[in-house]
Computed example of a mutant assay.
Amino acid sequence: MIRRYGEAVKSGMQYRRRPGVYAVLLRGDQVLLTHQAEPIPEFQLPGGGIDPGEAPIAALHREVYEETGWHISSPKLVGIYRRFTYMPEYDKWAEKVCAIYVARPTLCMGPPSEAGHTAIWTEAGSALALLTNQGDRAMAARVLRG
């Protein structure tokens, strides 16, 4: 069974399953997060949805690059969780199935290419406090606490 984080499932609501990949990116005692300005300003683990026909690791590389400007190496699966949420940018209710990886950022190619995202390096303890999503916070804590 995959653990659920976040708001309760709303009775009678049609949720679409949306698989996604996200990364805890470590460099020494620093963690790389992304700040998304809209639709609601929040700090997140870099990542996002897997496009139809796309392999999960390819999606992870693409999403991290789009949201941070960094290339990564050596991704290793940490865990998977679900959350049920409304996604205003897509105007849909989603069952997000979030696969979380730990990876090493290797090369910054520039600023994020995805509009509204800012890459933020922060200390590990601060990262946990900044992460808005309860599932992201739990998975990052798993990595940071060993």
Rank of each mutant, 00 (worst) to 15 (best):
A8K: 14
V9A: 04
V9Y: 00
S11F: 11
M13L: 12
M13H: 05
Q14N: 12
Y15D: 02
Y15I: 09
R16W: 01
R16G: 00
R17E: 11
R17F: 00
R17D: 10
R17A: 05
R17M: 12
P19Y: 06
P19T: 01
G20C: 00
G20V: 02
V21E: 04
V21Q: 04
Y22F: 01
Y22A: 00
A23I: 02
A23L: 01
A23H: 04
V24M: 06
V24F: 00
L26P: 02
L26D: 00
L26E: 12
L26Q: 09
R27A: 12
D29C: 02
Q30L: 09
V31L: 12
V31K: 15
L33E: 14
L33A: 08
T34Y: 13
H35R: 15
Q36C: 11
A37G: 11
A37I: 11
E38K: 14
E38C: 08
P39F: 07
I40D: 12
P41A: 12
E42F: 06
E42I: 02
F43Q: 09
Q44K: 14
L45W: 01
P46D: 13
D51P: 00
D51A: 15
P52M: 05
P52V: 03
E54F: 03
E54R: 11
I57C: 00
I57H: 06
A58M: 10
A58S: 13
A58R: 14
A58Q: 14
A58W: 09
A58F: 00
A59Q: 10
L60T: 01
R62Q: 07
R62F: 10
R62S: 03
E63L: 12
E63A: 07
E63V: 00
E63C: 10
E63T: 10
Y65N: 04
Y65M: 12
Y65K: 11
Y65I: 00
E66C: 05
E67N: 05
E67S: 02
G69T: 10
